[in-house]
């Protein structure tokens, strides 16, 4: 078995007195693809934000490769360089074209060589089918294209862990596929990823493990076949039922 890359231990997150995450613990091994599911408001997006320390936490810890990721700490920017994150929407920088969006952090944060970084960026753009959009501005792209650029932008920092926060939730149905295909491709390359999604079929296809969160707690942590065929808890059964329809006539 591969070594543990990410260790989340007893994570507690509270908002205005309400507890959103109530003692979350799990490990992610190198190369694993974890899909987090749960009803809306169950705290799954908050979990990703806490892993990347975009939110202060009230208890527990997050460790990446043995080093703690702490909100407000001095080395946080360095830790975040190892974690790539893609959001639901609107996270491309509107005042920069595609290639500048991608190169901003590699050049300004990692101080990499420009032509080398640019060559890599173009290679990645080609891989997601957008090599002709390098000079376009975000507003000239479709939602699916924007999300593929956002993925490339995260990849270009050479992260060891990728976080996807409902990246297809704001997209039209016909654009969902092109983004999911890119993610399947990344899984095939052996990347370590944590994915929050509502696309159940996709979840089943890509996941090595499924975490089902309810009321701020991990209720199930199992392989996808077990989770989707024979969930143990009633809450998971109820949740999965939402996606089943019976003929009304």
């Amino acid at each position: 078995m591969a070594e543990v890359l990410l260790k989340v231990k007893d994570l507690v997150k509270q908002f205005d007195g309400g507890t959103v995450l109530d003692g979350i613990s799990f490990d992610v091994r190198r190369g694993e693809v974890i899909v987090v599911v749960g009803s809306s408001g169950c705290g799954k997006s908050t979990l990703l934000r806490c892993i990347n320390a975009l939110e202060p936490i009230q208890g527990g810890s997050v460790e990446l490769g043995g080093e703690p990721v702490v909100y407000g700490s001095k080395n946080l920017a360095r830790m975040r360089q190892q974690i790539g994150m893609v959001f639901q929407s609107y996270d491309l920088f509107p005042h920069m074209n595609v290639i500048d969006n991608i190169l901003l952090a590699p050049l300004k944060v990692q101080k990499r060589n420009k032509s080398e970084a640019r060559a890599e960026a173009m290679e990645l753009l080609k891989r997601v089918g957008l090599e002709d959009k390098a000079e376009s501005y975000p507003r000239q792209l479709s939602g699916g294209q924007k999300q593929r650029v956002a993925i490339v932008r995260a990849l270009c920092m050479h992260p060891v862990l990728l976080l996807f926060d409902e990246v297809t939730a704001a997209l039209d149905p016909e654009m969902v596929r092109e983004v999911l295909d890119v993610m399947l491709d990344l899984a095939g390359q052996g990347r370590t990823m944590i994915i929050v999604t509502h696309e159940m079929q996709f979840a089943r296809a890509i996941a090595d493990r499924v975490l089902f969160i309810d009321n701020g707690k991990i209720v199930e942590d199992s392989d996808p076949d077990t989770f989707f065929e024979s969930p143990k808890s009633d809450r998971a059964k109820q949740f999965l039922n939402i996606f089943n329809f019976e003929r009304s006539k």
Binding site: N52, L54, A77, R78, R80, Q81, Q82, I83, G84, M85, F87, Y90, D91, L92, F93, L104, A105, K108, V109, Q110, A150, R153, A154, M157
Partner: peptide
């Protein structure tokens, strides 16, 4: 916008 900049390690 700020969050995605931070998550890129800025």
């Amino acid at each position: 916008q700020n969050e995605s900049a931070l998550s890129l390690g800025m």
